[in-house]
Design a protein around this nucleic acid. Structure first.
Lengths: 127, 127, 127, 127
DNA sequence: GTGGTCTAGACCACT
DNA sequence: GTGGTCTAGACCACA
């Protein structure tokens, strides 16, 4: 998990999204322990409070649970729940605006496909 | 230009985007005067300073020029510049991440098309 | 008199400076008539009021006089007065700041001389 | 940093210039945090918004970066960039006009030197 | 009429 | 603690 942050979105939200991706992609499987706050904090050089805030979001979404003294664990069903929720959230909230923008700019499908295939694997971060 | 604002993004950025759309769509042609700060301010019920901030962004992007004592005017070439820049910016910065998300969520093209066609015409604003 | 205006300084001040230069350089001699407000206005495509404002400054400085029905005329002694006044004004108000800036930037005399000799004759206007 | 302001130029531009001088003079080194907006604001008795405006200019010039929640920091290379840019900007834009004026007024070098040495050390501000 | 600057004060999000 | 946004209202310079 190598991350560079953009300055537009709060770090804790960006981190939350990264963790979600790890779950969806199966890097973090259900039942696995999340890296500790301290670990993420030092590895990413961000404030522990910020890390906690991100993880707390996952707890609130019932994707992760705290086991006292052991750490945070991915809940059973998290992956399925995630793909379902993220999917409908994306289709309802984000995609309509994106589609509108694509239309306004007069972008053709082949342009989108070409551009997407240029994508160098994981394209995280960078403003 | 009837606008409702969302609470996530600063008003002046949203307003900047609206003005850009007006130029791209040809409502504001090159050489035209922008509506005056005071006019937009009273029409949209937002502070003049906020309006100025939005317009200043367009000046910084070399899309609009100030003629002292007269107002702000759309520069020649603004429309072309805009469609070109916004297009490449979208393809390079935004689309790769969107494409990645679509892939990760396992979304099919027909789902996207269906969702996009639900879009109620102009979908501006609303928090 | 071919002029392009910058946006930092008011046009009427820039125009006043141009007229002063014309007098110092002897293009406008003492006793000569200034171009009419209407003439300058149409030639430079600026508002007549703006032109009047510039000329009024010259009147206030006792460099120019109005002869009713005839126009504005350069007064006797204007050139001498100008070189004297502009000189001391420059030395007292402008030069100290310029000298300070030159020092701070660590500019050498030969750099200044080289740059100045590049100057393409009259370097008016352009922001 | 004790400052008195002149009334001709906007405060935020004057403040921007002060900060630039602090960087060039090495008072603010690369990597250092700028004094906080609130700090400058209360110390100089000017509105926080005005201070932000000045600092934002430095951000736009890529001299300073924001670290969210932490403050504004001088970027690596800022000092070099500054001396280079300010120097060439001065030589290309300002000096030619100044040189022209010196020539037109028939000023001698010794007059300039005498006048400059009258300058009372730091000649900031004062209307 | 036009835009620009500044203030005072409130509120918000982030670390 | 940090910066950012917004408002309301005043004042100024310019054309």
């Amino acid at each position: 998990m190598d991350i560079s942050w953009n300055n537009k979105e709060p770090i804790y939200l960006q981190l939350r999204d990264r963790l979600v991706e790890l779950i969806i992609d199966g890097v973090l499987n259900e039942g696995d322990a999340l890296p500790s706050v301290r670990h993420i904090s030092s590895e990413q050089r961000i404030n522990p409070v910020t890390v906690s805030k991100a993880i707390q979001l996952l707890v609130d979404e019932a994707l992760v649970e705290k086991r006292r003294g052991l750490g945070m664990f991915v809940l059973t069903g998290a992956k399925e729940k995630l793909t379902r929720d993220e999917k409908s959230k994306f289709l309802q909230e984000e995609w309509p605006q994106i589609a509108g923008k694509i239309e306004r700019l007069g972008l053709e499908i082949h342009e989108l496909i070409d551009s997407a295939s240029d994508e160098p694997g994981q394209n995280h971060g960078a403003d």
